[in-house]
Amino acid sequence: MSEKITITIDGKEITTDTEKKLLWVALDNDIYIPNLCAIREEERPYAGCRLCFVEIEGLEEPVTSCTQPVTEGMVVKTRTPQVDRLVKTSFELLLSDHRLQCNKCPKNKACELQKIARERKLKLKSKRIKHLERTFQIDDSPESFALDPSRCVLCNRCVWVDRNVAKAGCLGFSYRGINRIITTFNNVELTKSACTQCTLCVEACPVGALYFKE
């Protein structure tokens, strides 16, 4: 059973209910916290992108707000030196493995990475962390969209939509570590897989990895 409680985020008092996770309470109250992998409907947060850190009074280290249940009287800061440092490193790490050519990217200006950079005044090109030069095959077999793994941030959103909304069972993760990648079964082209071309995954993608061709 949820109860009404009051919490404070960045000095702003907010009334909400106990069942909610901190990230959504903040976003619903126009307080931006960077995030890529969070899905509101999902009970067990994925917690993979490591961007939504906040500091909570009484806790020693920053926590991810997507996993943090709100409690009465909780005092939250979305910007502290430690939070900013973690978000900066996490962002730079993601960008070090993201093919940057925004002007050629169909998601230019609609990209979540650009939004995070803008909100947190972060640079898309890191000075300290080297860019990983990796090459991937683009799959443009579907009629209206394509998949470019070199832009993928492995946020899980497309996989989640594929399973829970489209119920296609086409996309999934394979391999692990730095080789982890979004694939179809046996890495075949989308048109040869269980893909129904419903394009829900394209709409879910926060970056330019899954994009409409036009």
């Binding site: 917690a47 992108c49 490193t89 790490l93 070090s96 993760f173 570590g177 080789n179 982890r180």
Partner: peptide, 21 residues
């Protein structure tokens, strides 16, 4: 650790890769 990282979270997947490099 870089070979054994599951690859789910950014810090471990990419951080260990850069440290190894």
């Amino acid at each position: 650790t870089q070979q054994e990282s599951c690859g789910k979270c950014t810090f471990c997947r990419l951080g260990t890769k850069h440290m190894l490099d």
